[in-house]
Write a protein that binds this DNA or RNA. Structure first.
Lengths: 212, 212, 212, 212
DNA sequence: TATGAATGAGACTTCATTCAT
DNA sequence: AATGAATGAAGTCTCATTCAT
């Protein structure tokens, strides 16, 4: 009954943050609005003052994650040192290590209960990632290290190949089967798609391996 | 109130088929069990005789689709004539043209409301497709037309690249933006991933273009 | 957003009047505060400057109606010409013809949605009416036209009998059933309660009939 | 989460009974549906399976009370021994002593928070009571103890007079003011309305006084 | 097997009221 | 005084699932 009044954005962020935590812990469908508001300490009506629906909250959450992530991606792509290879590597590295609650975001998203989040996030992040990769590929073309005909499409292709391989990877882990080191495979495929000389990328990777 | 008794499998198929139609039209979440049973003309309880849950029905539906699809895929991969390229092409073609209710299944699956179906289907079909592609790649390697280091991973990579590009394509279509012909891009990328000589695949495709 | 400042009582009356109109049209419960303020053209907060609660507004409204009505009742009871019968008749007449929005207030109050208003109004008006009647009855006793043992109680009894008969009347009208002319019945009962000679009151009424 | 299945009418009565208890304790408006279901031990959805709305529940409750009460009233009116006076007396007595939770129902209903219940109950019980009284009055007319011109209207009038006097009485009690013994007044008024000889009814009452 | 009313979970809506500006 | 976004209370609806018959 005691009323706590907070600034719009503060309270909103509070709700979104709590939802993020709970969605990742229990999954979107398995997290009742009831649970969120209880955790935040607000009433039903308050929730629906800020969000049209539970689904709308997911949108906002995705939006917030996107904002946070895409900003970094772009910055890394544009500001990090080195040639195109190095920059793509840095972006990938950032993305792969992106974590929530001590676990990699990408691992989280591959869990079945997070389809909703995964799907929406992917839909929004993909164009940004693809844009970055595309520009870097063009740079690489100019630098003479890459030889790519369709930069944007190749960017999308690389992301698709890498993601599917990661997903397969997750499946394998779930089934406790591990085949080839998928990172080697991804590198091999990138090399091919980027039109690099064979072994060039692997060589580069070995240099930076320690940094991870 | 009149009670219709049917053979178990007949009735089950009837439910699954109706569900398929409704899920694709309205989406999984937006199709109440109520709607399905009303359409089929059975009672609530009857539904739960056949399926443990609505989710279970989705599983069965996916299973049924899988059975139908993977059988064909394997057959096409193994029995169709020609070299590895031709066979991969045939499999892809079959998959791409797979339709429901006068529309391509793949188009359907990319609609937002079908995340559930998409996710589960992909998870099950991918290994089968990848297996086929993988074997064909090995054949191609042996035939000397391909030069692939990690056949299975490359198979997954090709599927990922192709799917992401299709999805991007769908998004573009939704936004009424059309860029490069993605089919050309996909072919270019496959050529590279399969380690073929540049232009070799495109050349081949042109020959068979009319058949589609 | 433009801010209109008005004198306290003017604004207050404006709100009460609007509320009266809306309460009678939609009923107390079915009239959101939102509706009232929208109609008046003020903000939520402003409403709560003038009234502690929606319920408080109802009180004020009742108070205002009471003030308006009881003043007239007392005046008619005390100042109107003629003997006790005539005066009671005049008071009743005034009350019965009291109208809101072209309809009799008493008719309005008998509608289901106006329980709140009815109840509170009755509770406040009854003592005033009973007081008037009671004094008039005593006068009549002195004048020798009435012969009443418990003036105040008889006053209340007359009001009760008359009201219940009117309510029954309303119900009958709703069900499109009309039985005996209730006015004749009310007059008969008053005659008895007031200890008049049979037919005396009816006779009197006939004289003044035209005035109504 | 454990499910308790009960027969429709059993469960329904359970809800209505609980509601009756709570409504009378806290008042209709001050009893949330939440409270009712918590007390009964059922879920929201279950409640709305049985009742279209909280208001609908009130209707059912009234219906149930009516059924219970009107049956008795009619029986007493028709089966109890003695002449018309005695019977009317018995009905009144039954009604006046009708209790809920150790308190007289009529006292309960006069509490402000029970307007809803009061209003609806009165609306439904009145016709029944009036019907009984009306028939008894006709009997009394025939027996020569009464001399009533409009039996039904007089019945309604008696009920109105008696109720208003009781209400006034309640108000007085609340304000700790006690005036004339209202029972004497009511008897006096009934005597007059029923066209009895003065003092006849009081005399009769004195005989039966002890029985109460 | 078939039925559908009964049940529980939870999304969503409406609305009175408060409070920082 | 005036404003209206913010808040909490509570009503209602939709839907998956269970169970007695």
């Amino acid at each position: 009954m005691p009323r706590t009044v907070k600034e719009h954005d503060v309270r909103k962020k509070e709700i979104v943050d709590t939802a993020e935590r709970l969605f990742l812990e229990y999954g979107y469908e398995e997290t009742p609005v009831e649970m969120i508001i209880h955790e935040v300490g607000i009433a039903k009506g308050t929730f629906y003052h800020y969000f049209r629906s539970k689904d709308d909250l997911l949108d906002e959450l995705v939006e917030q994650l996107i904002e946070e992530v895409t900003g970094n991606i772009k910055r890394i792509a544009e500001e990090s040192e080195g040639n195109a290879i190095e920059r793509i590597f840095n972006v990938s590295l950032y993305f792969r290590n992106l974590g929530v609650r001590k676990q990699r975001l990408t691992d989280y998203l591959h869990e079945d209960r997070n389809v909703h989040l995964h799907h929406r996030l992917e839909k929004k992040v993909l164009p940004v990632m693809a844009g970055c990769y595309s520009r870097l590929i063009e740079t690489g073309n100019e630098e003479g290290i890459f030889n790519v005909k369709y930069p944007y499409e190749t960017a999308v292709g690389i992301l698709g190949a890498a993601n599917y391989l990661s997903e397969e990877h997750h499946e394998d882990l779930t089934r406790h089967v591990v085949k080839v080191d998928i990172y080697l495979a991804i590198i091999d495929l990138m090399e091919r798609m980027l039109g690099m000389k064979e072994g060039k990328l692997i060589e580069f990777m070995k240099h930076t391996e320690g940094r991870e």
